[in-house]
Amino acid sequence: MKIPFSYSWKSLLARKATSALTAAGMALVVYVFATVLMLSEGLKQTLVATGSDDNVVLIRQGAETEVQSTIEREQAAIIESAPEIAYAPNGTKFASKEVMVLMTLPKRGSDKPSNVTIRGLSEKGLELRPQVRLLEGRMFRPGSSEIVAGRKIAENFKGAGIGETLRFGLRDWAVVGVTDAGNTAFSSEIWGDAEQLMQAFRRTAYSAVVAKLADVSLLERFKVRIESDPRMKVEAKRETDFYAEQSEMLANFLKILGMTLSVIFSLGAIIGAVITMYGAVASRTREIGTLRALGFRRVGILSAFLFESLLLGLIGGLVGVALASTMQFLTVSTLNWQTFSELAFTFTLTPAIAFQSLAFSLFMGLVGGLLPAFRAARMDLIEALRAV
Score class of each variant (00 low, 15 high):
A149M: 07
E155F: 13
V388E: 08
F94Q: 13
I78G: 00
M26W: 03
A273P: 01
A344G: 08
L312V: 15
I271D: 08
Y243V: 07
I275A: 13
M379S: 08
K2H: 09
A236V: 10
G300A: 15
E235P: 02
Y7R: 01
T104H: 07
S52A: 15
A86R: 09
M1A: 14
S325A: 14
G258K: 01
S145M: 08
K233P: 04
L121R: 06
S114L: 13
A24N: 05
T117V: 06
I118L: 14
S247Q: 08
Q356I: 03
S187K: 04
A304W: 01
E80H: 08
Q45H: 13
I153Y: 13
G268T: 01
L37P: 06
S309A: 15
R151E: 12
V263M: 06
L335Q: 12
A95N: 05
M259H: 12
S361T: 02
V234R: 11
A236D: 07
F94A: 14
R202I: 06
S333E: 09
K233T: 14
E127H: 03
D241N: 12
G258W: 01
M364A: 12
F329A: 11
F363P: 00
L135W: 03
L126T: 07
A76N: 02
G143A: 04
T331G: 09
K107T: 15
D111R: 14
Y278M: 15
L28M: 03
L323S: 00
F340L: 11
R292K: 15
V319Q: 01
G369H: 06
Q196T: 08
S145I: 04
F242S: 07
V234L: 13
S303H: 00
T326H: 01
T165R: 05
S187L: 07
K112F: 08
M379V: 03
S341Y: 05
F347D: 13
V319P: 02
P230K: 08
R378A: 14
A273K: 08
D111V: 06
R297T: 03
R73K: 11
F296V: 11
A27C: 03
L257K: 01
A376R: 09
L170H: 11
E66P: 00
S110F: 11
L250F: 11
V263Y: 12
A376F: 15
M38Y: 09
G258I: 01
A205K: 03
T104W: 10
L362P: 02
K44R: 14
F222D: 02
E72P: 00
E195G: 07
P142M: 10
E136V: 11
I353K: 02
Y278R: 09
D54M: 11
A324G: 01
G268H: 01
T65Q: 09
Q68P: 12
A304K: 10
L39K: 06
Q61L: 10
S266R: 04
E220G: 05
Q199G: 14
T46R: 06
A344C: 03
S357F: 08
A82F: 05
R298E: 10
A324Y: 02
F157W: 15
L311I: 04
Q61D: 13
A34W: 04
T117Y: 10
E248P: 08
T260Q: 01
A86S: 09
